[in-house]
Design a binder for these strands. Sequence first.
DNA 1: CGATCTCAACTGACATGTTAGTTGACAGGT
DNA 2: ACCTGTCAACTAACATGTCAGTTGAGATCG
Lengths: 235, 235
Amino acid sequence: MANTTNISAEALADIDQLDGPLSQRVYTALRDAILDMKLVPGTVLRKAAICEQFGVSRSPVADALTRLSGDGLVDVIPQSATRVTRFSLDEIREECFLRDAVEVAAVKRVAATRTHDQILQLKRNVHLQKLLVEDEDFHGFFEADEAFHKMLLEFTGFRSVAAIAGQLALQLRRVRMLVLPKAGRPAETLAEHAAILDSITDQDPQAAAKAMRYHLAQLINRIEPLERQHPDFFC
Amino acid sequence: MANTTNISAEALADIDQLDGPLSQRVYTALRDAILDMKLVPGTVLRKAAICEQFGVSRSPVADALTRLSGDGLVDVIPQSATRVTRFSLDEIREECFLRDAVEVAAVKRVAATRTHDQILQLKRNVHLQKLLVEDEDFHGFFEADEAFHKMLLEFTGFRSVAAIAGQLALQLRRVRMLVLPKAGRPAETLAEHAAILDSITDQDPQAAAKAMRYHLAQLINRIEPLERQHPDFFC
DNA sequence: CGATCTCAACTGACATGTTAGTTGACAGGT
DNA sequence: ACCTGTCAACTAACATGTCAGTTGAGATCG
């Protein structure tokens, strides 16, 4: 088994410059590392190693791993090991279905209720995306992309719907990082975002729903070929 | 503060006739007790008391509480206390929005793809509901109600979408227990379920979506007056 | 009598010792 | 060469001891 990483790399190291309980900090650090694919699927997480890395005892680490397990980001094999969950095409398809359901419903609502200020914020974000595409700043674009979708969820008027929906699609967020760097994809994404924004501006919920549905469909189309490219990330 | 229950009642006690790790069993027992409203919102959960109840040490209990916190079923006040989360009308409205988005999308899909066997299973379930309404078996009806919605989610063809969606609306499940015993509501619910089933049988996704949307809207309508009736359950 | 300050008791957070289950390498037999 | 049974090393799970922050009752002061 050469391709299953056994050592939790130094690359994750986020030292304790955060606040709050220790277990929370450990959780956040590990979570971010997993979501950013710094800890690739299949990586074995050893409690002892993590304790050493952060200079804490096993309690907060165990606590953090329990939470990550609840998020579906790690698989705990009882009495044996804990590893970063691999992708499952079936599960990804399910999350796409759910994400589609939620985000299409959200964009419909926002198209109907949008305020002038909300349009402005979205326009600003899309403009930023344009600049980032031109600069070929993939990482920056990824963040702006996320912010765009998050904004739409928040503009439903439901304060924490963005948080819950975000939690729901944690796996998807990881895969998107693999999809984005494909040549030309950021530019296409930008165009799709612009189309969504136009429909919202026109207060046309049906058109907005259609644009969003098309946009989200692009993701699953691009994920499926990925299994051949990174076979060790899938189970 | 007389109305905040301070003692975790015996009523929860599910002894260790389950299998798996201890922490899992404790988690399940507490979770079920909370979802069945045997532990009412606001109840303070004392680690020591729970340890005694189950005859285990603090580790598995702490583990279980961490998971429950992740599910949003308990609030942990650092260094102070852990209590069963109270209802928040805002959050409930958000969960209704999400549940609507997901279940309407699901029922649309099922209406389009349903097989003969699936129709049969749904018919059987609705028939069972009818019998339970006639017998005024509220608890049984509640379970059949849940099973009906779960079936619809499973019939999307996405195996675990029911699990994820169920996780999403844990709070709602609690409130539904308060709403159901209202006079006449089970019979109405039954009729709404039947309407949904009819639309699915007719392979009419739009009608099914409309019927589902109407059905789900009844819940939020009935929750809002509830705040006056059980003020100590809300925050 | 009322507002505030103090302190003891209680709670969860964390550290660490112990136990039991799993795994994989290796020896021995086929 | 291959299958198999054994066993040692490793892991997560669990128990328990310690610490620090919170809380609320009662003492103290205005």
